[in-house]
């Protein structure tokens, strides 16, 4: 397994669409891939650097991106022209970035998400098993333990932030044949505990606040991804902790450690365990498992 590579994805022609008279949406690929995501990030970074008058929002997504603009300042066709020009000049071969590797303690099979998932069993594919049991079986694992092992065996990269403020969508950093996939709930739940670790499609998420949700629920982290008052350590620059390109390392913890970390978070004394490294897509694609191990060493050394 350790010599597996991530095959490069040849992206189709990008699809440019007008979202009303004040948005342009650009789909780089229908399917998720690191190539599509890195290209979305590289292009949006270029758009940001150009600082085009009238463009208010630049939002990279998993395999697409979107800009919102004031049509009284810049015409929709001009925006589209600028985006095509930037895309033509952007080459992800030359793209690398300084990434943060972040330790995310997770109490899997926690009592809070368990209570919620039992409450919404009638909206789930399998009323008689838990979300983890269902996901394990669907992905060909013998046990929930084996599924959790695979889920935490490689880090997950933040490929998009959104839905609600601070929610990271993350894509596990393994070749596609080793990726896991699950459907969302048949009907969305009206409740999800805050800090739930969820999984839907091929994306893991951390729900920042309590609310609606449709992803399978696996556990809960004691740490925050959103602090609107910006009082906690790590939130000095922004009320949102995760950024696209960050790498999350989910680490299973027991109830004792969960409670201890939570206590420090609530006291405002918890410092995130992070490390920084220059992320080189080429090296990652060539030998992802080895590359991930190196990232893990940087974090935990």
């Amino acid at each position: 397994m350790s010599d597996a590579r991530i095959e490069r994805t040849e992206l189709p022609d990008a699809r440019y669409e007008h979202g009303g008279d004040d948005h342009v949406f650009v789909e780089l690929d229908e399917s998720m891939s690191f190539d599509a995501n890195f290209r979305a990030m590289a292009i949006t970074q270029q758009i940001r650097e150009r600082d085009i008058e009238g463009i208010n929002e630049i939002a990279p997504a998993n395999a697409s991106y979107m800009v919102q603009f004031d049509p009284d300042v810049i015409r929709p066709e001009s925006v589209l022209g600028e985006l095509r020009e930037i895309a033509a000049e952007t080459d992800i071969e030359e793209y690398s970035w300084e990434t943060r590797i972040i330790d995310v303690p997770v109490l899997f099979r926690d009592p809070w998400t368990h209570e919620t998932l039992m409450e919404f069993r009638d909206r789930h594919q399998t009323p008689d098993s838990t979300d983890l049991e269902y996901s394990a079986e669907l992905n060909g694992f013998d046990s929930v333990e084996a599924f959790i092992d695979a889920f935490v065996s490689a880090p997950h990269m933040v490929t998009m932030v959104g839905f609600v403020p601070g929610l990271p969508w993350c894509f596990q950093m393994v070749p596609q044949e080793d990726q896991m996939e699950v459907p969302k709930y048949k009907q969305p739940r009206t409740d999800t505990p805050s800090r739930t670790i969820g999984f839907g499609g091929a994306f893991s998420v951390i729900y920042p606040v309590q609310g609606a949700g449709g992803y399978q629920m696996y556990g809960r982290t004691p740490i925050e991804v959103l602090d609107v008052d910006q009082e906690l350590p790590g939130f000095e620059e922004s009320m949102v902790f995760p950024n696209p390109g960050d790498i999350l390392n989910y680490r299973p913890v027991d109830r004792e450690e969960y409670d201890a970390v939570r206590e420090r978070v609530e006291a405002g004394t918890y410092e995130y365990d992070t490390a920084t490294a220059e992320f080189e897509p080429d090296e990652f694609f060539e030998s992802p498992y080895e590359y991930n191990e190196r990232l893990s060493e940087v974090l935990y050394e």
Binding site: G19, G20, D22, H23, F25, E27, D29, E30, S31, M32, S33, A59, A61, N62, A63, S64, Y65, M66, Q68, M160, G162, F163, W169, F171, Q176, Q179, E181, P183, K184, P188, G200, G201, A202, F203
Partner: peptide, 24 residues
């Protein structure tokens, strides 16, 4: 497509324009 989810209404997650009509 890979990553989208199994329902035919699903796409690989995107940004929604304000005013857009989504179809769960």
């Amino acid at each position: 497509p890979f990553g989208a989810g199994t329902d035919p209404s699903n796409v690989v997650d995107v940004g929604y324009p304000i005013g857009s009509i989504q179809l769960p």
